[in-house]
């Protein structure tokens, strides 16, 4: 093979045909309120850990809806379970409980 000094750039397009919804569906089974998020960003704005670690419940949910499990797990590691996000969620999602449920699913998968 020839060496050209450049290569085909990878595409950033998300192929929604290939999204694996299985984690999202498992989450929704135990936390149906996960479906209620309207991406307002209140949780991220108030998150104690967010500005240092990138943690955002909104982004975690979006990543899981787009099948990006590893990215969601990475964000979740920043959470300190303080519960501020639960206080501000206008849709009344128990985000703290949701995070714990997600951790439980990830924990089960690691076993």
């Amino acid at each position: 093979m020839m060496e050209f000094g450049f290569s085909i750039s990878p595409s950033s397009t998300m192929n929604l045909d290939k999204v694996d919804f299985s984690l999202y569906e498992r989450l929704c089974e135990i936390e149906p309120d996960a479906k209620k998020c309207m991406a307002c960003g209140s949780c991220s704005a108030t998150c104690t850990a967010g500005q240092w670690t990138g943690m955002s419940v909104r982004k975690v949910l979006l990543d899981i809806q787009r099948g990006k499990e590893a990215e969601a797990a990475r964000l979740l590691k920043g959470c300190m379970l303080c519960g501020k996000c639960t206080m501000v969620c206008p849709r009344g999602i128990n985000t703290r409980h949701l995070i714990l449920s997600l951790c439980r699913i990830y924990g089960e998968d690691e076993k």
Binding site: S12, L16, D17, R66
Partner: peptide, 12 residues
Amino acid sequence: EDTLSGKPAKIT
């Protein structure tokens, strides 16, 4: 664009 993810998206 999935503007929440900030990435172009396509779907069939």
